[in-house]
């Protein structure tokens, strides 16, 4: 585990990496995304856990992304993701369509080191036809009970922003436990945090229960305000005015370029 500057942390995400990202409400490492945009990264494959938002739209618009795997991509209450919409229409991006529980289950399979996870539902949805890598088998423990299997999802990198880390690199995430699943399932976990505490987060059960042990964490970078503009639960809210302006302006290529420049320069 090492403490790095944000730029050094970003340098550990190679072009072409398969990167797991949280949704806008769960701790997005926007400061690190800024670094990826500035580089700019190329050929990234993004995994939404289980959906994607602003980070993906910025990266897609800037040409950093080859493929996404997600249950959805939108700006939530601010509407559809404009840069993604454009890239999709131009055929400039590949989409592996999924559904929230399939992504959670795939990551859980990776957590356990097993090749797949069975999942109820989905059979009868046209989604199945878009996922030739998903299999339907007969439940071996019952008669005439077809069930879906989804393969394990093993991201190269999990990247997110959290409120707090301690000097040992333990990262406090509170109730946002999809971040824990991401850290378990990914080969490498890179985290930006609001602050670093001198206390040991594992010493008190009340913080330990919401903490990712340093065992899973490759590097931490301190980035106060690093969740702007999507916000960080419990710390500061989303900058809705900026997001609304982005949703409006980024509908044109020129508007997106201006918003991207503004975001990167900030």
């Amino acid at each position: 585990m090492s403490f790095l500057a944000v730029e050094e942390l970003v340098a550990r995400i190679p072009d072409g990496a398969f990167v797991a990202l949280p949704p806008d409400y769960s701790g997005c490492a926007m400061a690190a995304v800024r670094g990826l945009l500035w580089r700019p990264a190329r050929g990234l494959r993004l995994l939404g856990v289980p959906q994607l938002g602003l980070q993906a739209d910025l990266l897609i618009g800037a040409g950093c992304v080859a493929e996404i795997e997600t249950a959805a991509l939108s700006l939530g209450e601010h509407g559809l993701a404009p840069a993604f919409g454009r890239a999709w229409e131009e055929g400039a991006i590949a989409v592996r369509e999924s559904t929230c529980p399939a992504i959670h289950a795939g990551l859980q399979a990776a957590e356990k080191g097993v090749p797949f996870m069975p999942l109820r539902g989905v059979l009868g949805s046209d989604l199945l036809g878009l996922r030739p890598d998903w299999k339907v088998i007969d439940n071996p423990f019952a008669e005439k009970d077809p069930i879906l299997l989804v393969p394990a999802i093993r991201p190269d990198v999990a990247l997110f922003h959290a409120p707090l880390a301690d000097r040992a690199g333990n990262v406090w995430i509170g109730v946002r436990r999809e971040l824990l699943t991401m850290a378990h399932a990914a080969r490498r976990c890179l985290v930006t945090v609001e602050a670093v505490t001198e206390e040991d987060l594992l010493a008190d059960d009340r913080t330990a229960a919401g903490t990712i042990p340093a065992l899973y964490v490759e590097a931490v970078a301190e980035a106060p305000g690093g969740g702007w503009p999507v916000g960080l639960q419990g710390a500061y809210p989303a900058d809705d005015a900026w997001l609304a302006r982005y949703a409006r302006e980024a509908r044109t290529e020129a508007g997106f370029t201006a918003m991207l420049a503004e975001f990167v320069a900030r």
């Binding site: 249950a71 939108s74 993701a81 559904t99 929230c100 529980p101 109820r120 009868g124 949805s125 989604l127």
Partner: peptide
Amino acid sequence: FAGNFGAPYLAF
């Protein structure tokens, strides 16, 4: 549009 979210699963 945005995507399928959890609907292919929750509907069952």
